[in-house]
Design a protein around this nucleic acid. Sequence first.
DNA 1: GGTTTATTGGACCGCATGTTCCATAACAGA
DNA 2: TCTGTTATGGAACATGCGGTCCAATAAACC
Lengths: 231, 231
Amino acid sequence: MLSDAAHCAATQAMPVASRQIFFDFVNRMVHKYLMAANIGRPLEFDPDLALDAAMHQFWSKGYESTSMQDLLATMNLSKSSLYQAFGGKQQLFRQCVARYADQFTQMLRDGLSGAPSGRKFIEGFLNSVLNDVSGQAQPRGCLVMNTASEFAQSDPEIAQDVAHSIERFRNVLRAAVERAQREGDIPPERDAQMLANFLVSSMSGLKTQAKAGADAATLQGIISMVLKALD
Amino acid sequence: MLSDAAHCAATQAMPVASRQIFFDFVNRMVHKYLMAANIGRPLEFDPDLALDAAMHQFWSKGYESTSMQDLLATMNLSKSSLYQAFGGKQQLFRQCVARYADQFTQMLRDGLSGAPSGRKFIEGFLNSVLNDVSGQAQPRGCLVMNTASEFAQSDPEIAQDVAHSIERFRNVLRAAVERAQREGDIPPERDAQMLANFLVSSMSGLKTQAKAGADAATLQGIISMVLKALD
DNA sequence: GGTTTATTGGACCGCATGTTCCATAACAGA
DNA sequence: TCTGTTATGGAACATGCGGTCCAATAAACC
């Protein structure tokens, strides 16, 4: 998209590691501008919808077990379009994780602001894992935690994505805890940050148990233990 | 190993699905007998050591991300030997998971019987996750939970292996809880089975958090919350 | 020494992988 | 209508995958 000359000139003074990121960014900006100005052939698909489909695929099967063919089928676009629009499997995956984190964080925020109390929100948050085992679809866990589990720290970029996403989740949960403390449902002397970490960890454990085949009664028992720990 | 004639004759009256399992069993018995009788060329490698190496490989990288080449390299044997001795990638994997569950269950049992109290054992059990983040090696989690996360319920046989392994872990933990109850460190009216489930889930969550990059202080905070829930 | 049995290394197989490339199609503006 | 720009479809690519096969080899018994 950028000319080779411009590419070469601008990269002279830049550390190698930064170049790819920088030019990805510039190209995206240029692309956005060109699309807005109706220059060139328009896309035949909705990038948001396609990204959503890819996200669900990765969510269900993980990164390695999801093939390009799987992605092309669910996203309903051609190979070149995928590479053109999303850059490849790994880049697409990272965008999916980011999208998941966005949606999940927003869902948490909405849930908290609409809940009758902070405590009730936390209860609903934990109980939501029961939905995973009630339906006929097999539990998929949380895409962010699945990613943490699959990649661990082996890929630094993905590790950073994961850490950042978890931090966003925790921030909402800490807000919920603090609200519950103001409302008198959690002792005010408890460390809100620690409780939030505990809730993240507990949710992660619950989802894994659901994946491992635990039934609703078992999960409910665990949830009651988690709630008790908040008192 | 068995002649084709014997194979054909015996399978005539057998449902298709049972034949493979049956002949796997017979062949294993015959093989065991022949090895014990020193018939034929002896193995040039130690199957236990090789299995251990494979286990660590799967533990570090998961099933899909571990290639046959990875396995051959760490197990230090040739492709034909691997197929001859372990049957293929998936069969090898299941043996590794079983081995892990055996070792981990035994470790738990030994830890419990050697611990000064049930409560102290549980504390040590939870605190052991801190070792995962203290060393330079990246945390690998628990092979059984990793397997649950990677395969979910997609493979029935593996799902059963996972469920069975978790049950074994839980049995030891329930014994620990019951001992702590007898020793007065956990209220006797608490449901031991439920507490054991909670401990399994909590450990799983903790290990995932470790994989996601949580530091020792964060993990320690979560552990203190888990312990508080036992009171 | 001959026979029997199993292991071993390596070549080979078919297939699926993620990726690249190019000719063509579709649109906007001159 | 011509030009410039991007999107699309499909062919082609190299590579690595898990798995199979076979001749050569090694041990132990008769």
